[in-house]
Amino acid sequence: MDKFTVLNGLVAPIDRANVDTDQIIPKQYLASIKRTGFGEGLFAEWRKDASFVLNQSRYKGATILLGRKNFGCGSSREHAPWALMDYGFRSVIAPSFADIFFNNSFKNGFLPVVLSEAEVDRLFHECNAFPGFRLVIDLERQTVASTDGALTMHFDIDPFRKYCLLNGLDEIGLTLRHADKIRAFEARRKAQHPWYF
């Protein structure tokens, strides 16, 4: 997993609430047998519309997505963060996220940032008003700021998730530090509730 420290990136706004994973990566792209390559299917249905954000040249090369509430609702498909990452995004900012998408994102080194509705509104405003609008996401300091620093917003993040992202730490490695405890638990459960095994 790649480390996530500071991201300075162009922002692409998707001004819709409840963007679901079926839109993020339509299922016809899921049969791909490689983890990479999903970027092709990112928002495939919406991209058929020439005026869609990702088709506009001013957002070419964007690495930060700006969204509305309940971003990533729908299926538990891990492809959603993969597709976003494969396309080039490393982070999405929104007022709220669906649980599964939120969790899957962290596990893939993709950072979902929760800001308040008002802050997100403000960012949409700036983003629409200024072509080339960029933001700097500093994970260590937990801030989202304009490149000139005039606008700085703070976000919360679970310390454990932050630690893993900052260090590019993968979960199996973390877990196996507890191998003895897992073994002991297993033995105890088997003795107490043998019918489950």
Binding site: K107, N108, D170, T175, L176, I182
Partner: peptide
């Protein structure tokens, strides 16, 4: 509990455990 088909599933297969909040 639903888990993701990539990393989380990989973790369950390898360790028979899952990290959750």
């Amino acid at each position: 509990i639903p888990i993701g088909g990539g990393n989380q599933l990989r973790h369950v297969v390898a360790t028979q455990t899952v990290w959750l909040k």
